[in-house]
Amino acid sequence: MKPAPFTYEAPTTLAEAVDVLGRYGDEAKVLAGGQSLVPVLALRLARFEALVDLNRVDELAYVREDDGAVVIGAMTRQATVEADPLVARSVPVLAEATRLIGHFQIRNRGTLGGSIAHGDPAAEYPAVVTALDATVTVAGPGGQRQIAATDLYDGPMTSTLSDDEILAAVSFPVWGPGSGFAVREMARREGDFATAGTVVGVTVADGKISRAAISLFGMGPVPLRARAAEAHLVGADASGLDLTEVGAAAVADVDPPSDVHASGRYRTRVASRLVARALESALQEANR
């Protein structure tokens, strides 16, 4: 469990990082918190000619408000996100989901951008950005571009970033008043990747649901949006919903994987119940 040899690059600015990465192309990998990449390297499941370490790029670590959104730099530690007052106030489900990531030691090192760029389909952050319709800013040789979170993944741990692009920031839209959110997951142990999980957001106006988002994680190759169930919710009365039915609708079209921890059948059943639980909690929050 020792990695194969690699060249170590440690740029101090984003521009320099993009430049260094461009020199290696797909022969290099960006190192953020290292919580997933380093074990993979140690097991020699992957190898790269170079690692481009972003840990000295201070400009990528921030949380700020920008035009009705909360924008978080990619190198912001998960522990910082978890404790940030602006996040707690404006994107509370992001803080809630952060507490489910690994253990505090992992969150001290792990970063928001690293987790989102890595795109583990059973991880919390990709599901949060998928549910909240967040936007990702990536920097490459040709400058910066925006990618909608729902267009970010095209396979397990495969994003639509080019090999020469770096995920720089994530912008979370702040949902309006009357909104509520919840994240629920089943994990074998505290801190594990989810066997199945969901992030739910709703906005309630005049007793009716005006906006709904449901994402599922651990349920497919990428974080999924349960569009049919969302459509079922929008326009419905917030009280008297059949939560079990919504849960069933949310998993109607998914085909989750089976592994040593659980079968796909189990994941489907549990995800539908987690959606019901999360929705109940989100509606309570929206009505407060």
């Binding site: 074990p39 142990r189 505290e190 594990d192």
Partner: peptide, 24 residues
């Protein structure tokens, strides 16, 4: 510790071989 039907080990790291933690 799980083997598949061909004798390939499937739980080869702590990601899959789950030990109880203090939280459990």
């Amino acid at each position: 510790f799980v083997y598949d039907g061909d004798g390939n080990p499937l739980t080869t790291t702590f990601l899959d071989y789950l030990l109880p933690t203090a939280a459990d």
